[in-house]
């Protein structure tokens, strides 16, 4: 089965639509949402509608820290731009949207895979995987062979080694990586709606569970349109600008 993995959409409708269209061309049969559907962008409700429709058809979706923040909390540990966007988003969510978010689990296990937003190790702590040590902690916290996460906003693959310390690999867009059965894999999927690796193109990934491969794709979309909406909504200018440069 071909499974599309979409992380960190962040209310960016243009990017989400472009990735979903690309995934259809890639013969994807199943969609997985790795959290942070909301925050930063100007289209929270339209994005939630698209995602909720796929979730209704059986697509797993997990909760991200921005999604949780849209429900409640004092947002003390967020940057001020992110916080502004959360307050703005909260005002736009109706009971239907809030119920949908409140129903999202922190993690979903499926066959030998685990889907979680930040780390398999205490998902609610929203830890960033920034090195081999964090990757090792994530492996230790689950028995899943392949763990798919988002949260970091740029793609990276960690694999377990006989020596114990996981090693990192920077995947090349469009090149399938065979996920050897003799190892465990922690796959950080880049962001759909707010890439931060200097490339403004949206990012998502496809896992082929039959051939055992993983491919991440970069999908160009109209980032300027998404940026204009952010400005029109009165959200911080930096949130608009960063979409156009991928930062």
């Amino acid at each position: 089965m071909r499974i599309a993995l979409l992380a960190d959409i962040h209310s960016n409708l243009e990017a989400l639509q472009a990735c979903l269209a690309h995934a259809r061309r890639e013969s994807v049969e199943r969609y997985v949402f790795l959290g942070d559907l909301l925050g930063y962008g100007a289209d929270p409700v339209a994005c939630l509608d698209l995602v909720a429709e796929l979730v209704e058809q059986g697509a797993p979706a997990v909760l991200g820290n921005h999604d949780a923040a849209c429900l409640e909390g004092d947002l003390q540990d967020m940057g001020h731009h992110a916080r502004d966007a959360i307050y703005w988003t909260r005002k736009r969510l109706g009971p239907r949207e809030r119920d949908f978010l409140a129903g999202l689990p922190l993690a979903v296990a499926e066959e030998d895979r685990l889907y979680v937003h930040a780390s398999a190790d205490r998902p609610e702590a929203w830890t960033y995987i920034t090195g081999a040590k964090d990757a090792a902690a994530a492996f230790a916290a689950t028995s899943a062979r392949v763990v798919f996460i988002g949260h970091v906003h740029s793609s990276l693959v960690y694999f377990s080694t006989p020596g114990g310390t996981p090693r990192a690999f920077q995947p090349v867009a469009g090149v399938p990586i065979p996920l050897s059965d003799y190892r465990r894999w922690l796959i950080i999927v880049g962001s759909v709606g707010q890439p931060r690796d200097g490339n403004p193109a949206a990012c998502y990934a496809v896992h082929d569970s039959v051939s055992g491969t993983f491919t991440h794709f970069r999908v160009p979309y109209d980032a300027h349109a998404a940026a204009r909406k952010i400005r029109a909504a009165g959200l911080p200018e930096r949130l608009a600008w960063r979409l156009t440069v991928g930062q």
């Binding site: 694999f159 080694t161 020596g163 090149v175 990586i177 065979p178 050897s180 190892r183």
Partner: peptide
């Protein structure tokens, strides 16, 4: 070059 290097570096 486009696949993970699984060979152990010691």
């Amino acid at each position: 070059a486009e696949l993970p290097d699984l060979v152990e570096e010691e």
